[in-house]
């Protein structure tokens, strides 16, 4: 449910470092809470992200949730496939359901995020 090699935020995003960049998506817990996702609204490549600020939205039929950036950085790539198949976020949140590839402004922020153990205890307390 929660891969060991990822870092997690309190807003239920995961971050996977890949070289100089990181990949961002939402966790299994988040997709389960949202239910069937029908629309994902993401920023365009080139836009900058601010840690703690909203960068997009996910929608189910009757709810909207904002996505909060776990880090500062610049968007390098966006998962365009989610436009047509937002349900991938439900079925494969850590794989095909990724959302953004980002060049972090300050790589140390990633280190400040929760480990899988921390996240699991965070959500079991939630």
């Amino acid at each position: 449910m929660y891969p060991k090699d990822l870092r997690y935020s309190k807003e239920h995003e995961w971050v996977r470092p890949e070289g100089d960049e990181v990949v961002i998506g939402i966790t299994h817990f988040a997709q389960d809470q949202l239910g069937e996702i029908v629309f994902v609204d993401l920023p365009a490549a080139g836009e900058s992200l601010c840690a703690g600020a909203a960068f997009g939205e996910v929608e189910s039929v009757k709810s909207v949730s904002e996505l909060y950036s776990p880090i500062d950085g610049e968007v390098v790539a966006v998962n365009e496939a989610l436009t047509d198949t937002p349900e991938t976020v439900n079925s494969d949140p850590y794989g095909e359901g990724w959302m953004l590839r980002v060049r972090p402004g300050d790589a140390s922020l990633v280190e400040g995020l929760m480990t899988v153990e921390d996240y699991e205890s965070f959500i079991s307390g939630a």
Binding site: F39, E59, V61, K62, S63, V64
Partner: peptide, 12 residues
């Protein structure tokens, strides 16, 4: 597509 509307998105 009701997520555009006030009963869901409220002030937004």
């Amino acid at each position: 597509l009701s997520t555009r509307e006030q009963h869901i998105r409220r002030e937004k």
